[in-house]
Amino acid sequence: MTEITERIYLFKWFERFWHWSQAVLIILMAITGFEIHGSYNLFGFHTAIDIHVYSAWILIVLWVFTIFWHLTTGEYKHYIPTWKGLTQQILYYMQGIFTGAPHPFHASAKAKHNPLQRIAYLLLKVMMIPLIWASGLLYLFYNDWAAWGLVELGLTLEQVAVVHVLAAFLLLLFLIAHLYLITTGATVLQFTKAMITGWEDVPVEHNKQPKL
């Protein structure tokens, strides 16, 4: 029996612009970050540093506008954690996805992300991104530490570098997991197309689900 679906406008233009711009900048920073650490020679050491720093500043500006957009449009509500359906979602990713079980969650205009995605994206926004921000800026403005009174705190450049690299690897792991999970829709490109066009086909009965 063919499942009845309807097309809904799920992702607004700024959401798509932010998503793809952020992806390009993070990947560019990962590539240059590995080069800065001596993993290979692609752009050249000094050019890699310049690209890394400029990309970081652009990303920070993008994040500031995105935070403002989420708060003023109410889109932040899609990232509020919920226990409802969390166990079913975890079991689906652990077992159901490999046995052809139906997905326990389908996106709607009232709930774009499943319970596990909400937690993952929230951790990204309140832990990994601020950690990247803080450690990167501290590293960049190392010469100003004395004026800021940070030297007296016993903070060292090595400690900041370790935190920055750790946060970067956490972000990279998140990106890898994200790339895998976007292929787990009804078709491999279902979720990717939705983030390009803004429209997604969802089962009619799920689109009428109550707000989480």
Results as ranks from 00 to 15, higher is better:
5 T>R: 10
8 I>R: 11
11 F>M: 03
13 W>F: 01
13 W>A: 04
14 F>C: 02
14 F>K: 02
16 R>N: 02
17 F>E: 01
17 F>Y: 03
17 F>G: 00
20 W>G: 08
21 S>E: 03
26 I>A: 05
28 L>V: 05
29 M>I: 02
36 I>M: 15
38 G>F: 15
39 S>M: 14
40 Y>P: 14
40 Y>T: 06
41 N>L: 11
41 N>D: 14
41 N>C: 08
44 G>Q: 04
44 G>A: 03
45 F>N: 13
46 H>N: 12
48 A>Q: 12
48 A>T: 08
50 D>A: 06
56 A>E: 04
57 W>T: 04
58 I>D: 04
58 I>P: 00
59 L>R: 09
61 V>D: 06
71 L>H: 03
71 L>E: 07
72 T>Q: 12
72 T>W: 15
73 T>I: 05
74 G>I: 12
77 K>I: 07
78 H>L: 06
78 H>C: 07
80 I>R: 13
82 T>N: 10
82 T>Y: 12
82 T>L: 13
83 W>F: 15
84 K>C: 08
89 Q>Y: 02
90 I>P: 05
91 L>P: 07
96 G>A: 06
97 I>P: 00
99 T>I: 02
100 G>P: 12
101 A>E: 09
101 A>P: 08
102 P>N: 03
102 P>D: 06
102 P>E: 07
102 P>S: 05
103 H>R: 13
105 F>Q: 10
106 H>E: 13
109 A>S: 09
109 A>L: 15
110 K>R: 11
118 R>E: 14
119 I>T: 01
120 A>M: 11
121 Y>Q: 07
125 K>M: 14
131 L>M: 13
132 I>V: 10
134 A>F: 15
139 Y>K: 12
147 A>Q: 15
149 G>Y: 08
150 L>T: 07
151 V>H: 09
153 L>N: 08
154 G>A: 09
157 L>K: 15
157 L>W: 12
157 L>G: 09
157 L>T: 10
158 E>K: 11
159 Q>M: 11
160 V>N: 08
161 A>R: 15
162 V>Q: 11
168 A>E: 06
171 L>Q: 05
175 L>R: 00
176 I>F: 12
177 A>H: 05
180 Y>Q: 00
181 L>A: 04
182 I>F: 00
183 T>N: 00
184 T>F: 00
185 G>S: 01
187 T>C: 04
188 V>H: 01
188 V>Q: 01
188 V>L: 03
194 A>N: 06
197 T>M: 04
199 W>Q: 08
202 V>M: 02
203 P>T: 09
210 P>R: 01
